[in-house]
């Protein structure tokens, strides 16, 4: 009897053992072959959603999202000074349980608190385009703004004018990237004796304000023969102002970023050079880095500079520049 019970126990344990084995085998194969994961969520929060620059950024982010099978959402405030809305967007995204936020800060300081909160809630932050004053950011992907500013300076100095009377139309003074660009530009040109900075204004990042400010500036200081400006909307504002005042021939404009209108202006002469960033790469790399961070991949560099290209009327249709200027839909 004793022996019998023992053998029954053994049979019982053996059968349990086999059942466990079969279960393990099944689960392994299922995992292997179906590759079911719950999708990683990445929120891209930009400064705006309307400009060509940001649209291209979103296109890049979306491409990366497709590549890595992520859920990517896009958001941005109505106007490019609205850091409050941006902070709300960050908090809401954290509440919604996103895994990472790809963020471009409207305000270098005012966005810090929301960003730090998000990080302490376990959300990875990848900064693109415009930095925020926080050490908790996992990676930064942007144009080297100082260098881009320098590139504007090079374009200005490449002109043949003997005296360069420069007017600066910059956007929101709280935005880190605009200030860096201006600094890069100033550091590069100030040493040059040809250059005089006649006027420098900061406007809200809209076409209308930029246009109005430019017209006012040109009217007050008609000797200005060079205007530099540092983002897409201010570039268009300056372009329209030059068009309206019909000073395209005597005023050289070095502008920033491209869209179909500014490219048209480059062709027709209101704008003479464009420093073009690589927003597509920014968006793509931003999401890619978010993915890598979430997958614990080793990231060798946490500060990535994307390329900038100086486009002039003469080289704008060179095959490589076509690729920079015109996005492929």
């Amino acid at each position: 009897m004793k022996c019998n019970r023992k053998s029954k126990m053994i049979v019982f344990f053996l059968s349990i053992y086999f059942v466990i084995n079969v279960c393990c085998a099944c689960s392994i194969t299922e995992k292997e072959w179906t590759g079911e994961h719950s999708k990683i969520q990445v929120a891209v929060i930009a400064k705006s959603t309307t400009s060509a620059y940001w649209k291209t950024t979103f296109a890049g982010a979306s491409a990366a999202g497709t590549e890595y099978n992520l859920d990517v959402s896009f958001e941005g405030p109505e106007n490019e000074e609205d850091y409050e809305t941006q902070n709300q967007m960050i908090r809401k995204a954290v509440e919604n349980g996103v895994d990472a936020i790809v963020f471009s800060a409207v305000d270098y300081n005012a966005n810090v608190e929301a960003v730090n909160e998000a990080v302490s809630a376990g959300v990875k932050i990848v900064i693109i385009d415009s930095d925020v004053n926080s050490d908790l950011v996992s990676a930064r992907i942007s144009t080297d703004n100082y260098k881009a500013g320098k590139m504007v300076g090079e374009a200005v100095l490449s002109g043949t004018e003997e005296v360069l009377q420069v007017g600066i139309v910059n956007f929101d003074e709280h935005s880190e990237n605009g200030q860096q660009r201006e600094k890069g530009f100033l550091d590069y040109v100030e040493a040059n004796e040809r250059v005089t900075i006649v006027s420098s204004v900061n406007v809200n990042s809209t076409i209308e304000e930029a246009k109005a400010a430019t017209i006012k500036m040109l009217k007050e200081q008609p000797q200005i023969n060079i205007i530099v400006t540092f983002n897409e909307w201010t570039s268009l504002g300056v372009g329209y102002a030059v068009q309206e005042l019909d000073v395209a021939d005597k005023t050289r404009v070095v502008a920033f970023d491209s869209n179909v209108v500014s490219v048209g202006m480059l062709e027709t002469g209101e704008v003479d050079a464009l420093v073009v960033q690589n927003p597509y790469a920014m968006g793509y790399l931003g999401v890619e880095y978010a993915w890598m961070l979430l997958n614990d991949d080793k990231i060798r560099e946490t500060n990535i500079d994307t390329t900038t290209t100086l486009i002039t009327r003469d080289n704008m249709y060179a095959p490589e520049n076509q690729k920079v200027l015109f996005s492929f839909e």
């Binding site: 296109a59 890049g60 491409a63 690589n278 597509y280 790469a281 793509y284 790399l285 390329t307 690729k323 920079v324 996005s327 492929f328």
Partner: peptide
């Protein structure tokens, strides 16, 4: 298919 990636130098 990833023309834009190539154009963006990625």
């Amino acid at each position: 298919p990833q023309q834009q990636l190539i154009y963006a130098g990625l």
